[in-house]
């Protein structure tokens, strides 16, 4: 098991390096830079001399390879540099938003798991009954409903029926749990519903597949209680693909809630991501891509470890 884990960790290094190289090159290929966009936007006159000076200050006058090496060297020392747009440390800019994004992702995952596993299992066990149909309609509706649209409906409903709107500012859960939850529960529900739909569908099909396996028949033939057959033998095996779906969705939620963040005016990582690309804030975009890539890699790693824990055969392969 230890060798397996070490091997997986070593595989992460070239993946991360590849991501760093690709994002660095892609950002430079995009036309325009942070200085041009910052000063041309307003339509007020700015001298060429000032643009040159600002580019030099951000290191944009240096050769590309020099900029790349400087960035990599910074990352190695865990120095992510400063934002080309605000001049503030990137870690500070991300820290402000990460707590919110992480909390929404965790809450959405919690809702999704809470809904998906019981419903998916129930749908599989009651296959082709009215229970299965209702659950399938519920989950297909979730897949077909964009989270941002559901978010808009939620806001309108709250406004029209309760004359209330969620707070516009983020308050930490540790500071004021009430204010925090009253802001974040809505996007978490909106995102969690779509998320749960995917996981419900996956749980249903996985449980259906497992329930037809020989070992389930054997367990039943041994005279085990149906409850034990399902929880101990069926569900444990059926969870492998479900864990993959949940893990990948969680990683996606860290930086992928752009539109939902817009709808609820959340100051999250997704919004920062889009903003930094539009502003050609190279250092910020590179770091955010790296953060999301690392999140995906780590989540995949954790999922693989869970696989190995749930299914011992994987370790020996």
């Amino acid at each position: 098991m230890h060798r397996y884990i070490i091997k997986r960790i070593l595989f992460m290094i070239p993946t991360i390096l590849g991501v760093m190289f690709i994002v660095f090159v892609l950002m430079r290929v995009l036309p325009g830079d942070a200085v041009e966009i910052r000063y041309a936007e307003e339509g007020t006159f700015v001298s060429e001399e000032m643009l040159v000076q600002e580019r030099a200050r951000l290191g944009l006058d240096q050769p590309i390879w020099h900029q790349f090496v400087k960035w990599i060297w910074g990352i190695v020392r865990l120095d992510f540099g400063i934002s080309m747009w605000t001049g503030r440390p990137i870690t500070h800019e991300i820290k402000i938003r990460l707590e919110l994004s992480l909390q929404v992702a965790l809450m959405a995952t919690f809702f999704a798991t809470l809904i998906a596993i019981p419903l998916g299992t129930m749908a599989a066990l009651k296959q082709d009954t009215w229970v299965d149909y209702v659950i399938r309609i519920f989950s297909i509706a979730g897949l077909a409903t964009p989270s941002f649209w559901l978010g808009i409906l939620m806001i309108l409903m709250l406004l029209i029926y309760f004359k209330w709107l969620p707070p516009m500012f983020f308050t930490s859960l540790w500071k004021d749990p009430g204010a925090n939850l009253s802001q974040l529960i809505w996007p978490a529900l909106a995102v969690g519903y779509r998320y749960s739909a995917t996981a419900t569908r996956m749980t249903r099909s996985s449980v259906l597949e497992v329930m037809r396996e020989d070992y389930i028949r054997t367990a039943r033939a041994k005279g085990l209680w149906e409850k034990i057959v399902i929880t101990r033998h069926a569900l444990k095996n059926a969870m492998l693909p479900v864990i993959t779906v949940i893990g990948l969705e969680f990683a996606f939620l860290i930086g992928g809630l752009v539109v939902t963040e817009q709808v609820f005016n959340l100051n999250g990582i997704g919004k920062l991501f889009v903003q930094s690309i539009a502003q050609r804030d190279y250092t910020m975009t590179q770091t955010l891509v790296l953060l999301v890539a690392i999140t995906f890699i780590v989540v995949n790693f954790v999922v693989d470890i869970l696989y190995a824990w749930l299914d011992p055969r994987i370790r020996y392969q």
């Binding site: 995009l30 036309p31 325009g32 041009e36 966009i37 041309a40």
Partner: peptide, 10 residues
């Protein structure tokens, strides 16, 4: 989009 637009204009 803003970036290419500014680039072309310049």
């Amino acid at each position: 989009e803003t970036g290419p637009f500014f680039g072309d204009r310049k």
